[in-house]
Amino acid sequence: MAKKLRGEFFILSANDLRTGEVVFLTEKGWSVNSSEATIIKIDQVDKFQAISDRDEKKCIIVSSKFVELDENRKIKSLRDKIRNSGLTFKI
């Protein structure tokens, strides 16, 4: 996964295996709150990939991915922004 990444800073995201909810890796574990997410430098990606693999095996999360951040350390792509903040319209 690390080889395909572009960008310098990331946060690690996944879906909670049981609920499907979008979660982010924080210092205290997985949280739905992206503002608490640990910021990961490109050269730390392998280390965090291992954490993600471990937690996938433990059946905590599924479908993990590194989310690229922009120069202001905000989520860069629209898809990831929507994943983080939810639907862009009212139901």
Binding site: N15, K58, C59, R83, G86
Partner: peptide
């Protein structure tokens, strides 16, 4: 799947056969 006997790779085709996807925010 929930107790770890099936990996996601093994489970995915089984869930898809039952109409269950994993989408952007949820199943």
């Amino acid at each position: 799947r929930l107790n770890g006997q099936l990996s996601e790779e093994e489970f995915k085709p089984l869930r898809l056969m039952n109409g269950l996807y994993l989408q952007l925010h949820a199943y």
